Simulated assay, not measured.
Amino acid sequence: MRIATTIFLTDRTITPVRLARELEQRGFDGLYLPEHTHIPVSRESPAPMGGELPEQYGRTLDAFVALGQAAAVTERITLGTGITLVAQHDPIDLAKGIATLDHVSGGRFTLGLGYGWNVEEAADHGVEWRTRRELVRDRMALMRALWAPEPTAYEGEFGSVRASAAFPKPVRAPRALPGGAPLYGPRTLLGGAAGPKLFAHIAEYTDGWMPIGGRGLTESLPVLRTVWERSGRDPKDLQVVPYAVHPTAGKLAHFADLGIEEVVAQLPAAEEPEVLRVLDELAQYL
């Protein structure tokens, strides 16, 4: 099983360069970074973990800039987002940034994407909360048009793009979507809680699921696999990557029994000595 990591990198934590080098030298599989552009102080949305929202949510580094630094000082580790708030981006700009990071890293990028939880943050980006899922779906289709090998136009409910020259292209070869349409772009994993709508979207336009923590997978994975196969996707292509996991030997063995091949372990949003101490503890699972 491959063990990657995630961390809230901030202006007060270990730097992207130091962490990336340590991960590569120690044999970890990858680095995933979360995203928040800002956290309005008048926030009404409850913290996803309950209680007060930790300070690091409002101090998070830009994930793509930090991953670009990580790519420049490594050769092997995978690089990803967990998650990119697609609804809060201009899709043409985001498509360029994703393709560029994938290109300069040699195809090591994984796009973890999601719908978000902070209503106030999204509203400042002009996102209408009740339609955010459809907005994300539409923007992913627009980005796929820009990643296509030939100039491809897209006209959607929320946006459009003319047939355009748009380079670089993501490194990964296209995969087959339901109905035979090609899925262009890097490996794409959709985050969110298990449910019919989420599973339908996973099967429709992604490579798999990024569940937070990994609880309940014994019950939810068979449901997702059924939706995936009924949509016409190849069963062996489905990827499920539990995210922000606090590993134990028993938990990893359970994931392995479910056919999971990659886990993303949570690191503390801390300075270098504490992060390295936790990496030493996690090394037993490599």
Rank of each mutant, 00 (worst) to 15 (best):
G191N: 11
G191L: 11
G192A: 07
G192D: 10
G192I: 11
A193S: 14
A193Q: 13
A194N: 13
A194Q: 12
A194E: 12
A194I: 11
G195C: 06
G195H: 06
G195F: 06
P196H: 13
P196G: 13
P196L: 13
P196I: 13
K197G: 06
K197N: 12
K197T: 14
L198G: 00
L198Y: 02
F199M: 11
A200I: 05
A200Y: 09
A200F: 07
H201R: 15
H201L: 12
H201Y: 11
H201F: 06
H201G: 05
I202C: 06
I202H: 03
I202P: 04
A203H: 08
A203L: 05
E204T: 06
E204C: 02
E204G: 00
E204K: 11
Y205S: 05
Y205V: 02
Y205Q: 07
T206E: 00
T206D: 01
T206W: 04
T206S: 15
T206H: 03
T206Q: 02
D207N: 15
D207M: 10
D207L: 08
G208M: 02
G208L: 01
G208N: 00
W209T: 02
W209I: 02
W209Y: 04
M210N: 10
M210T: 07
M210W: 08
P211V: 01
P211Y: 06
P211W: 00
P211L: 11
P211H: 07
I212E: 12
I212D: 09
I212T: 14
I212N: 15
I212K: 13
I212P: 03
I212L: 15
G213N: 08
G213I: 04
G214V: 12
G214P: 13
G214T: 10
G214I: 11
G214E: 13
R215E: 14
R215C: 01
G216H: 08
G216Y: 07
G216W: 05
L217Y: 01
T218H: 10
T218I: 03
T218M: 00
T218W: 00
T218Y: 01
E219V: 03
E219Q: 10
S220P: 04
L221V: 10
L221K: 08
P222M: 12
P222G: 10
P222F: 11
P222H: 10
P222W: 11
P222E: 11
V223F: 08
V223M: 09
L224H: 05
L224M: 06
L224D: 02
L224G: 07
L224S: 04
L224E: 01
R225D: 01
R225Q: 15
R225A: 12
R225K: 15
T226W: 11
T226I: 06
T226G: 11
T226E: 15
V227K: 01
V227W: 02
V227D: 03
W228H: 07
W228A: 08
W228Y: 09
W228K: 04
E229N: 03
E229M: 00
E229S: 09
E229R: 00
E229C: 01
E229A: 13
E229D: 05
R230G: 01
S231M: 12
S231Y: 09
S231W: 06
S231N: 04
S231C: 08
S231Q: 09
G232T: 03
G232S: 03
G232K: 07
R233Y: 08
R233G: 10
R233Q: 10
R233D: 13
D234S: 14
D234R: 14
P235F: 05
P235I: 00
P235Q: 06
K236Y: 05
K236W: 03
K236D: 14
D237L: 02
L238H: 10
Q239D: 13
Q239P: 01
